[in-house]
Amino acid sequence: MLNIIVCVKAVPDPNDADKLKIDPVTKSLPRSDISLVINPLDSHALEAALEIKRNDDAHITILCMGPPPAGNIVKECLALGADKGILLSDPAFAGADAFATAYTLAKAIEKNGAVDLIFCGMASSDGATEWVGPEIATFLNMPVVTMVNEIVENAGDEWIVKADYEHGYRKVKIKLPAVLTVTRNLNQPKALSFSGILKARKKEIITWDLKDLGVPVENVGLKGSPTIVTEMTRLESRREVEILEGSLQEKVDRLIKILKNSGVVNV
């Protein structure tokens, strides 16, 4: 049986983007009083695991570090078809950067036992560093392929995957156990189903805190984060709009001029 771990992050609901506030001191995003959703790329990571489970014998564990409300996200993953959930929740874990996050997740993966495959989204919608997957692999001393967009061969313990690479792609042979981070092109996540939600009733969600992981408090959360956010600035995005006026000929002439000036056409 293939033991698969899917790392899932609870990120702010984009529909509530106007309610987001950044802590002015820690420069982090407090998550306890905003609505949370599954990080979009992580649902592709979960779907990748589910696709494997549909064809092979596999057990899928969801691993999520976040405040207690992130438990709902774990539950949703169980409703989508995962078998077991682990929520890493402790005030000490708060404010973690990619490094401290990967460290904490890696420790939990070690504690959880045998693992063949770890799926992560390529990036999170709120942090977007793309580092957590590779850093987990480093902590666990495993190979990693980032930006996987197709699983070409998955028989035995040597897999072949296709991954984005600038304007082309890489085809990589990788030996399990391994970490794969995925893009949205890998698959189309399936919708939640009522029967899936009901099946999740019988599935277990374990919560582990700092004590359960048995790691030093200096290594996790804000304290364990080497990244220092020194300053933040607001990005203004401005769009210039020009409404073309005049006769059809005048409008066409003006349009051609604009396209020429911006280098789009060369006439």
């Binding site: 709902n72 539950k75 949703e76 409703a79 919708a191 939640l192 189903s193 009522f194 939600i197 009901l198 999740a200 009733r201």
Partner: peptide, 13 residues
């Protein structure tokens, strides 16, 4: 929590 998931599934549908 389960009813909220029902709603989410129904809304998505």
């Amino acid at each position: 929590e389960e009813q909220e998931l029902f709603r989410k599934a129904a809304r998505e549908f």
